[in-house]
Amino acid sequence: MAKQSIFGRVSQLAKANINAMLDSAEDPQKMLDQMVRDYTDNIAEAETAVAQTIGNLRMIEEDYTEDKQASADWGNKALAASGKADEFRASGDTANADKFDSLAKVAIQRQMQSESEAKSAEPSISSQREIVEKLKTGLDAMKSKRHELVSKRDELVARAKSAQAQNQVQEAVKAIDFMDPTSEVSRFEEKIRREEARVRGAAELASSSLDAQFNSLEDLGEQTEIEARLAALKGPKSAPSITTGADE
């Protein structure tokens, strides 16, 4: 019963759909780790059961071989006893002839017993051989499935680590974008540009004011020249008289 139970577990685990189980798992990696442990434990248990079953089979086979050999040996003894009995009977020794015939009968009885035991063991041997082959097949499938599980787990772990590394890189890139030193430089450059623009504006304003002053000077000079020319047109008469002390 225990062997059949183990065989059932071997078959069930070997037929397990790993991908479907992974899809329904909340934490596939933990589930795979647990499955690997379960497979490893069940494989060890199954190996023990298979080894025991093989041992039992070999023991039955040895008993079968011994029964077959015993049957042959008792047949030879029966033949030898019967031949001896014939010799004694041919010589007129009826007593010894009957004695050896009795021995031949005993040997034949033992031969028949050995044959019966060997024959009764044959179905058991056939059944045990079938069970052993099934257990071996199931065990091989289970080992193959365990290898698949380990590969899946290793692949999943590698993918998880890769995803984690990519996430860390993305977070680092986000942090760099958020605290981008070039943006600070850009802001400082913008500040300088505004200051430069202010200086240019002030200079332009100052230049405009200076030009206005020069323009007013030019207007004043022109007015002076006009007055002078007007005075010249009027001649000396229009010139104001200047009284000196000598005239008085």
Results as ranks from 00 to 15, higher is better:
Gly235His: 01
Leu139Glu: 03
Arg89Leu: 04
Lys15Leu: 12
Gly92Glu: 05
Glu122Tyr: 10
Glu130Ser: 04
Gly245Asn: 15
Ala95Asp: 12
Val199His: 13
Val36Asp: 04
Ser144Gly: 07
Ser216Cys: 08
Ala232Cys: 12
Ser186His: 11
Asp23Gly: 14
Lys15Glu: 12
Ala90His: 06
Lys105Met: 00
Gln213Arg: 10
Asn19Leu: 04
Ser5Arg: 11
Ile6Ser: 00
Ala49Ser: 03
Arg187Met: 10
Ser238Glu: 13
Ser208Tyr: 10
Ala78Gly: 01
Asp86Met: 03
Lys161Arg: 09
Leu220Met: 14
Met59Val: 05
Glu66Gly: 07
Ser127Ala: 05
Ser238Tyr: 15
Gly83Ser: 04
Ile131Asn: 05
Glu130Gly: 03
Gln4Val: 05
Ile108Tyr: 01
Ile192Cys: 11
Gly55Asp: 07
Met179Glu: 13
Phe214Lys: 11
Ala206Thr: 11
Thr65Ala: 05
Gln52Thr: 07
Ile226Lys: 11
Val173Arg: 05
Asp211Tyr: 13
Ser126Val: 08
Gln52Leu: 12
Asp33Val: 13
Glu225Met: 15
Leu57Ile: 10
Leu220Arg: 13
Asp211Asn: 15
Lys3Glu: 02
Lys30Arg: 11
Lys30Val: 12
Asp86Cys: 02
Ala203Ser: 13
Arg110Met: 02
Leu79Ser: 00
Leu233Phe: 10
Lys152Glu: 06
Arg194Lys: 07
Ser120Gly: 11
Ser120Trp: 14
Gln12Asp: 03
Ile242Ser: 05
Glu47Asp: 10
Ser24Ala: 15
Lys134Ser: 06
Ser127Arg: 02
Ala232Thr: 15
Ala104Leu: 00
Arg110Asn: 02
Arg198Gln: 12
Ala46Leu: 05
Val50Leu: 15
Ala95Gln: 12
Ala239Phe: 13
Asn17Leu: 02
Asp63Lys: 04
Glu225Pro: 13
Glu227Trp: 13
Glu148Thr: 08
Val106Asp: 01
Lys30Trp: 06
Arg198Asn: 09
Ser102Trp: 02
Glu196Trp: 09
Val106Ala: 00
Glu227Asp: 15
Gln113Met: 09
Val157Glu: 09
Glu227Val: 11
Arg146Pro: 09
Ala203Gln: 15
Met21Phe: 12
Ala107Cys: 01
Asn167Phe: 11
Gln128Tyr: 04
Asp33Arg: 15
Ser71His: 02
Ala107Met: 01
Val185Thr: 15
Glu189Ser: 07
Ser238Gln: 08
Glu133Asn: 11
Asp211Trp: 15
Arg229Phe: 07
Asp154Cys: 04
Asp73His: 00
Met142Phe: 03
Ile131His: 03
Thr65Gln: 14
Leu22Trp: 04
Glu218Ile: 05
Leu217Val: 12
Val132Asn: 01
Gly8Asp: 07
Asp41Asn: 10
Val50Trp: 08
Ala231Asp: 06
Glu222Val: 09
Asp211Pro: 04
Ser208Phe: 15
Gln166Asn: 13
Ser183Tyr: 07
Arg159Val: 06
Val106Asn: 00
Ala121Tyr: 03
Phe7Asn: 00
Glu61Asp: 10
Thr244Arg: 12
Ser162Met: 09
Thr94Glu: 07
Gly245Trp: 07
Thr48Asn: 13
Val10Ile: 02
Leu205Tyr: 13
Thr137Asp: 08
Ile60His: 01
Met21Ser: 13
Ser151Cys: 08
Met21Cys: 14
Ser24Thr: 13
Val199Trp: 09
